[in-house]
Each structure stands twice: as C-alpha cells, then as structure tokens.
Design a protein around this nucleic acid. Structure first.
Lengths: 245, 245
DNA sequence: CGCATAATTGATGGTTATCAAGACCAGTGG
DNA sequence: CCACTGGTCTTGATAACCATCAATTATGCG
C-alpha cells in the first residue's frame, strides 16, 4: 500500500476492480476526519446512529453490556474497516464503540449510502457482500462461543485477528502487536481475564504461541488452526454474481 | 394474512410500501416450489450455494459442525424468511440446512438478486437492511452465548422465537408450538440437552413458563425479558434513509 | 401393545468463575 | 536515581455451574 492510498480503497480493491466513479464515491466517505485518544468512548449504545465511520488508522472495538456490567466485545476494527453497517438497520446504535489506541476516523452520514446504491451497482453489491461476510464470521464466532473451550477460543481469537490484519498488510508474517488487554480479550471470547492469562500461558508452554515485547507470535499456526477448525473467511469471496461494471 | 398472500410479501410489507414492480420481483422469487419431509438435510455445508430459498411453510434450522461432532445451531427459520443471504458472499455454503417439520421451499438463483439490485432500489435497500438486522440479532446472540447462564439463555431463546413468530402472525399471544427437541435447543444455545431439560423444568416450577400438549406458554414474559435483557430487534427498523419510491 | 424417540432425574467430575495476593512494568515525581 | 503509583499479568485456592454418564419415565406412532 502506498503512503497516500486509502486503506478503504486498498481493502475494497482486493475484491473488485474499482472504476473512477467508485473511487470518487469512496473518496467522499473519507472527506471528514476526527481523532480520538486511546480508551475513549467514540459512540455509546442508544445514541442515534446517523453516522458510519471509516477507520483511517488505529484499533477500536464495539461492545454490548448487560445491566449488571457483564460485557461482550462484539467486533475489533482496524484500518480500512467500515464501522456501523449493522446500525443503519436501527434508529439507535446497539453497540458502544471504544478506541483502543490513538485512532483517526472518517465519519460520514448514512445518506451517503443512498448515493452509492443509486450511483454504483457494483459498489452497492460489494458493500452488501462485505456485510454478509461479516455475518458469516459472526456465525463462526457463535460456534466458538457456544461450543469451544477456553483454549480453542483463544486460538480462534488470535487467528481471526491475524487474518484480518493480513488483508491490508500482505507482508505480515506470524508476529503482530495486540493492543488489547486480557480483560478485553476475555470479554471478546466469553472468558474472564484470569482464564485468558492461564490459557495463554499454557499455549506458550506448549510452544504454540510466544509473547515478546508486547508482540504475539504464532509459532505453530497449523496446529492452532486445527485446534479450533479455523476457516479463513477473508480470502475467498464470491463476486461472480455482481452486476457488470 | 390472507390464504393466498405470500408470507414473504406479508413480511416485507411490514417495513415499506411495495409497488407493483417490487411485487413482481418478489413473485419471481416464489415461482419454483420444493417439498421436504421433516428432519431432512436440504443443503449440506460445502455445497455450492447458487440458490437461496424463501420459506413458504414449515420450520428449518441452519447449523455448523466441528470435526468431533459438536454442533452449533445458528438460526431458526419460519414462513416468510429468506434463507442463504450470508452464503452469497461465499462460493460454498458455510452451513448445513435442516428441515424440522414438513416444509415447502421456493428456491431461486443468486442471479435474481442482481436483477433486484438493478431494478428496484427500495427493495435492494430493504433486503440489505434485513440482512443487517439479522446481524444485529447475531450480536445479541453472541452476548447471550458469551455471557449468560443456562437460565438466561433459555429465556432469550424462547423470547426470540416468539418475537419472530409474531412478525407474520399478529394474533399470536404467548402460546406457541415449538417443534424442536431439547438437543436442538441445546445446540442453539451452547448447552446440553440435559441442561435444557433441567432449566426448562426450573422455569416451569418458577411459573415463568408452562408446557402443555407440545405447546410452550410464556406465563411471565416481562420477567423473562428482564432476566436476559431481551431487546426486540424485529419491531423498529430504520427505513428513513431508503431511496425514494 | 410394543417400539423408538424424547424428556426427566440423580450422581459425579471437569472446566471455568471468583477471590485474593503478589509480581511486573512503565510512567511520574520527589 | 529511586520510591511511588496504577494498570496489567500471573498464580493459587475455592466454589459454582454445567457436562457427562446412566437409569428411568413419558410420549407418540405403527
């Protein structure tokens, strides 16, 4: 990715060839810019969800809480992601949106989607399909939370993160920085921070992962994949049914 | 719903006013018809997913399995539902599709969606939004599987079913037939059939539910809702951003 | 009635939550 | 330079919840 190419364009170019019109549409989505510090609530559940966000840089996650404080982290976002698609189905956002690191977001109003639907059939189809792909990943995650033990859940979580990062960063190998603490990881996988700690320690003793200087290293990705039956949903998407350019 | 009105049309009419063009499109989706007996595999995971289905009558569910046989039921379908949206993002279906009762399905090829996208902006926006709504429900389900105990999960499951049924059946009260066995309910909520049995018995002793002649009765829906913080995502959908008719 | 499937119930064990104490680490200020 | 601080991670002890196993009862159907 070149210095000044948008991560959004880079991410979407993976799937279809964008023409000038598409390119112009995507540029309008990244006109505005807003910065947030780490550990900041960008948007709280229950607020009106008139805006979506393109992530320009940084990490965020969305979560949903129960009255007694139990929390479920729903999704982790990186550069190039579009945040808030599911919310456009609702009047009010269902999720809290937290920054993890310093982030730069590009907010744009729901109505811009209307323009895309009207103006570019291929781009509409792509955004639609990306949302559906997210839904498939939610399906995988349901299986993970519903039927897997702590060890398998952590393996799945790490693999999912690394596969997401590889979409925009082709050169990435098996080492990455994970800016989430163990409480957040636990909230993402339905575990406590204590169990996350013990489980990661065990994975490390078994030489499946390693941790150095705040980085995670997947030492035996194959074994991790087999452990949790991981399927990479980010790679092969079916765009064959899209309207012609 | 009148005798000869399609459940699909009935369901979608809840959300927008359909014009003649929309109506014609929807009719093409229900041209073909196929019957299946109860407990039949309509489509297995890994098969090519060139078709979607409109449910004309009956119950079905989709599931995903692990190598060792553990199973997660992902979604339950009733009359008026469209099955397979998430699969159009993939070359091959991620899920198995099982009939629960006798069912009548209307299969239609993916390509028909292309026609809808090209032909009706409002209908495209609606189908898109319905998929996003499903995703929001998956989010709720993630929270349920990740952070709730058996009692809360069963409460959530029963409430979700009843709210789905109420979309097309306005006259429905608090009594309904649930054609799933306890193993299937367990697979849907990440529990064993034994735990489902014990938990439902406990809910019954606490006079929150009752079971008579194969029917489930929600005796205290308010208490059930509060127990699992249930939110009805089927009611209020935001269609204000849709293109003009 | 007899059979198969499903549901119930009790006993036991395993996994993870909970609680609590201590170690580690980076940043801050004396 | 070092003590102090807040956050995070680690580790062990205990408890709660659910899975597993197994036996029995209920239900529905030919």
């Amino acid at each position: 990715m070149s210095e000044n190419e948008s991560c959004l364009v880079s991410k979407l170019s993976n799937y279809i060839d964008l023409d000038q019109t598409d390119f112009d549409f995507l540029t309008t989505l990244e006109e505005e810019e807003e910065d947030f510090p780490p550990r900041h609530v960008v948007r709280a559940a229950g607020e009106e969800s008139d805006y979506l966000y393109v992530v320009k840089s940084g990490w965020l996650f969305s979560d949903i809480e129960l009255v007694d404080g139990r929390r479920q982290v729903v999704q982790v976002y990186n550069a190039g992601d579009i945040i808030g698609m599911p919310d456009i189905a609702l009047h009010r956002s269902a999720l809290n949106l937290h920054s993890i690191t310093d982030v730069v977001l590009c907010p744009f109003p729901k109505q811009h989607l209307d323009k895309i639907i009207t103006g570019s059939k291929r781009l509409s189809a792509l955004l639609f399909t990306l949302s559906l792909r997210d839904q498939v990943i939610f399906t995988d995650k349901l299986r993970t939370l519903g039927r897997m033990n702590a060890r398998e859940r952590i393996a799945w979580f790490l693999l999912d993160i690394v596969h997401r990062l590889r979409i925009t960063n082709r050169t990435m190998t098996d080492t990455f920085r994970l800016p989430m603490n163990q409480t957040e990881i636990g909230d993402a996988m339905g575990l406590t921070s204590v169990t996350v700690s013990k489980t990661m320690m065990q994975l490390q003793l078994d030489k499946l992962i390693d941790r150095r200087g705040g980085n995670i290293i997947l030492c035996d990705e194959k074994a991790l994949r087999e452990m949790c039956d991981y399927i990479d949903r980010y790679r092969d998407m079916d765009t064959s049914w899209f309207p012609e350019a």
